[in-house]
């Protein structure tokens, strides 16, 4: 990966996913500003990057609680995006932001909430 700099991305994990991310509900990580092909990093790249570099999971790929073997977020995990340009500071369904195609901005907040556990 040709490193052309990083951008800070704020993360939040809920519904038990935090167990795989240092047990922190929130953290800020530095993410490469460009993806493997040199395009601006988007949400799909962020998920790949988190899976490969940040997540602590040593089990089988098919049981990975965060991503499927195909690299998609596991169904049942909600992805919410807090765009830093939105003044309301609210998190929106990532469907409203283009899903994986959402281009990351410095200090974008991305929240992953698993709905799969607990009643």
């Amino acid at each position: 990966m040709s490193d052309t700099g990083t951008i800070p991305i704020r993360l939040s994990f809920g519904g038990g996913l935090e167990a795989y991310f240092s047990n922190k509900r929130t953290q800020t990580v530095q993410v490469p500003s460009k993806d493997e092909s040199g395009a601006p990093s988007n949400a799909a790249f962020l998920i790949r990057y988190l899976h490969e570099n940040i997540m602590q999971y040593h089990g089988e790929a098919k049981n990975n609680p965060f991503v499927t073997p195909e690299g998609d977020v596991r169904p049942g995990i909600l992805v919410l995006i807090g765009d830093p340009d939105e003044i309301d500071g609210e998190l929106a369904d990532w469907e409203l932001e283009g899903e994986g195609a959402y281009v990351l901005k410095p200090n974008t907040l991305v929240s992953f909430i698993s709905s799969l556990h607990g009643g």
């Binding site: 809920g14 038990g16 609680p65 698993s114 556990h117």
Partner: peptide, 12 residues
Amino acid sequence: HHKSLDYFSTEC
């Protein structure tokens, strides 16, 4: 989430 409810979840 939007009502900021206080709930608990553990990882299976």
